[in-house]
Design a binder for these strands. Sequence first.
RNA 1: GCCCUGGUGGUGGAAUUGGUAGACACGCAGGACUUAAAAUCCUGUUCGCCGAAAAGCGAGUGCGGGUUCAAGUCCCGCCUGGGGCACCA
Length: 1084
Amino acid sequence: MTQPVPGFAQSRYPNKKIGNMEYQFRSIEKKWQKHWQDNHAYRVSNISDKPKCYVLDMFPYPSGAGLHVGHPLGYIASDIYSRFKRLKGFNVLHPMGYDAFGLPAEQYAIEHGVHPAVSTKQNIDNFRKQLDNIGFCYDWEREVRTCEPNYYKWTQWIFLQLFNSFYNRTLQKAQPISELIAAFETAGNAAYPMPDSSFHTASFSAAEWAGFDETTKQAILMEYRLAYCGEGEVNWCEALGTVLANDEVVNGVSERGGHPVVKKKLRQWYLRITEYADRLQNDLQKLEWSDAMKEMQTNWIGKSSGAEIDFVVSTSPQPLSKGEGQKEPGYFTSTPDKWKALIDYAKANRKNPTAAESALWAVLRNRQLNGWKFRRQHPVAGYISDFVCLDAKLIVEVDGGYHSEAEQQSFDALRTEWLNEHGYTMLRFSNEEVLEQIDTVKSRIEEVLGTPSPLEREKEGEVVLRVYTTRPDTIFGVDFMVVAPEHEVVAKITTAEQKTAVEQYLDYVNSRSERERMAEKKITGCFTGAYAINPFSGRAIPIWISEYVLAGYGTGAIMAVPCGDERDHKFAQHFNIPITNIIGDAYNGQEANPTKDAVLENSDFLNGMVMRKAIDVVIDKLEALGIGTRKTNYRMRDAAFSRQRYWGEPFPIVWVGNTAYALPESELPLLLPEVDSYSPGPEGQGPLANIPEWTDRQLETNTMPGYAGSSWYFLRYMDPGNDAAFASRQATDYWNQVDVYIGGTEHAVGHLLYSRMWTKALYDLGHLSFDEPFKKLVNQGMIQGSSRFVYRKRGTNVFVSAGLKDQYETDALHADVNFVDGYELDIEAFKKWRNGEYANAEFILEDGKYLCGAEVEKMSKSKFNTVNPDMLVDKYGADTFRMYEMFLGPIEQSKPWDTKGIEGVHRFLKKFWRLFFDEQKGSVWNNDAPTDVEYKSLHKAIKKIEEDTERFSFNTAVSAFMICVNELSDLKCNKRAILEPLCILMTPYAPHIAEELWHALGNAGSVLDAAFPVFEPKYLVESSKEYPVSINGKVRTSLSFALDADQATVEAGVLANEVVQKWLEGKPPKKIIYVKGKMINVVI
RNA sequence: GCCCUGGUGGUGGAAUUGGUAGACACGCAGGACUUAAAAUCCUGUUCGCCGAAAAGCGAGUGCGGGUUCAAGUCCCGCCUGGGGCACCA
């Protein structure tokens, strides 16, 4: 721990007049910073009998622009909290490091040829210098940098953990993939449904698994891995030869240069975070995060429950309903007018399946037979078949089922004709066969089915449109369907007449980014010419495409219910689609009503039912009919985990043909190789694709994204030097969760979700004893810049003062805030700016001054509104700077920076100093016994500051300091018994001045390790209170009563008061409200 | 567009649970000390009305409604600033 400074054992300032005793903040701060560093005052041990406390700042990216005053806000807050906890007797871990991989360094490398490692190191050195200036208590021996091999070795190691794991849905946890393989070998994948059910080999037996070749096996395993490789769309800019971030694409062209950007499919790695969706959502309740933050994560995960419903597609609205003999398209399984009648038959029957039917269904359902989809009691050509696989044109009948004479006869002719024409096969089994020899039956069916290829399945058979809806209760209010423009079904269903219109629309959509599409207010869309058949009413519903439906969410298709959904309603109005009202008076014809509590009308079997209840009724019915399933959906998608960049962690993956294999752990770290050029490889691949030695080894050429390193850095701080593990179990057990995590809301979903997922995965795999990384989260607001503008007359070098700018045609230009005083421009400084670019500028002044315009914007170098903390620390000292940042306002609130108020905080510190020292007389503190008033002032401060610091209300704590120092100054109190505890109280906020004065009082050890003063309530006890007395809620006077005064005493006192009497005008009051300790209100 | 969040004097903000709106600062005005300046100290400072002053009256927490003895705080509807929306980190 901290050693005493030589010569400081006794008071450095004896009680005698010494020359200049003013507050020399800079020399004091430098002295103590050096002392603390030399004595390792901030070194933290992993072994301690004190309770632990882990206080963490969000990982900074060391940008080349350096720190501006916005950055340290959270760091100061966490620093104060850490120091406070240390005084309260905790072993506090408070580390700092750098998220050092990232795009800006790579961009800088491309433009200037400087290796990212070099520029990153420079930036870090600069960052560090600036941080040190402010006097933070980080244990720098624990610093980590994500770009260093001894760090990213473990990033790669964790990646391999994820790659070599799958999510066991039954146990709801990650497990080694070896266990999955073992399960496949013994029982196939029946117990482990594939996360992506549309994968071509969705189910297989143990025997089938054994028969698969290595490539197939690996392809199947890839479908399960928590880190997996697939294909994804990126913003590809041919002209720049690179992949662009969403925010680098504006209006379909690149932000830099305005080149066209198109979607391109590339190999991408993903994290299967969707498997964790439920746990990520449920475990939020364990966390002390703001409700807003939990809400944001919940919305991002976007869990919703509803149903997937299959609609049969038709390309003409009313086939066969008018002209007899009209030819049915090949994918028709029924016709709208007959459908309803058939459904009615089916309904009754499906509820009461025979034992044989149930047994067979158990074998056929859920695409169990090589992925073939079966339906039961499904209408085919005006006839209800027991089971049908439409894709394979196979009908399976079980004798003893429902076949009335009348029905047989009425549909027989049509059925025979249709079946012949369309090449259907029919298999018939007896009840006994099914019940007693189910395996034989199964293999017969399999024989006929063969192995389907996706091509075959699409070649003929029906087209089914599957939609996802959270409101199946509104099924009778569906007036149109909307399909995502990129949905694969679009090409299949678009009619010849609509082909041109659809293609034009697709061109339009392709030029737009996902964000633009979601933000679009104007309504766009295009009719495909096809119709979906409502399975209950048989109604033909037009199918549209529109950009507001995204392919990635749900099934990429929705059923639109205009009377209940605002967006659907606007769409219907815009395209003149008639609106069906299913909720009677609850729909006013003008705007949609999304209620769930209306009573349904126009809804067949749902009529009279409350919507909320109808949801389940409809889903049950859909499931019974085999045309829909209950479905939980998540808005969250798997996290894209690869970048086509150089400056990131290489993947420890080798490719053998099309199969990815993990490098053995012994080959970690896989070092990032040197490159000559940072420009992208061929076909949008990363720069690593340009290195022959790399590609010769068949190594993965993508690199990991920025969030790879930052998803686990909080673990590394616990044991940063460990080269046998990412951190020892002993260290992670001891430090456990981060107790307080401070950072901005901009990380609300990305970083905070990924870190939670990684922690959970490591926990599942037995590497950690906790499954949530950050127990408490404090969100700091953003410090904005207050920009200043000058107005240049267009095409000239003449600048017009803000008040006169409307008289001219002008362009607003950012002026550097550092040479604007308030709004007045320092013209001479401006002329020298930017190498004299404006040296010859002329100015049109108002009242002899040039006034600037102002606007609040993000603080950024490009807007010339940054303020450098170094400058302020230099002028006022680190302690003043720290306290001023806290004094600005609540930590979680965003506010524009204004340097002006800093003087007030500086004056306060000087005033504090003067309680100890007089400029002329030297030391003035004494050992006199304090009075009760002085104790009261101190203990009021102890109470307030302790409470406020604990709840992160630093601005009010600073003001409590000011109040206390003002009171002590007024009392002329220079008593050591008061000042010494005040010094300790001040330590977290202004450590340098506190340490200096602590030693000045003759203390030997460091104030950093002093004990936080104990609040004693006895000094604050009052016997009476001055009550505000209101008449009808308006304060008119005040009266003093004993604190334990009862209602009668108070009423008597109040009524005797002349102000009250004046307002009463002789009448008795209606009521007198007396809230003990608060107020009195007289109601007249 | 969707999600989150904020709006209180000239300025930053305070009011922790519905109970004296404007604490603490900045700025401004006036004064003391000084040859002067800096520093420091004192007084005033929500707005309007009345008044020499004291006192008093009215309005007032983005806008419009509502609940309550009492609303910055709770409810409904609007306006508006900021953050996020999956490759910035």
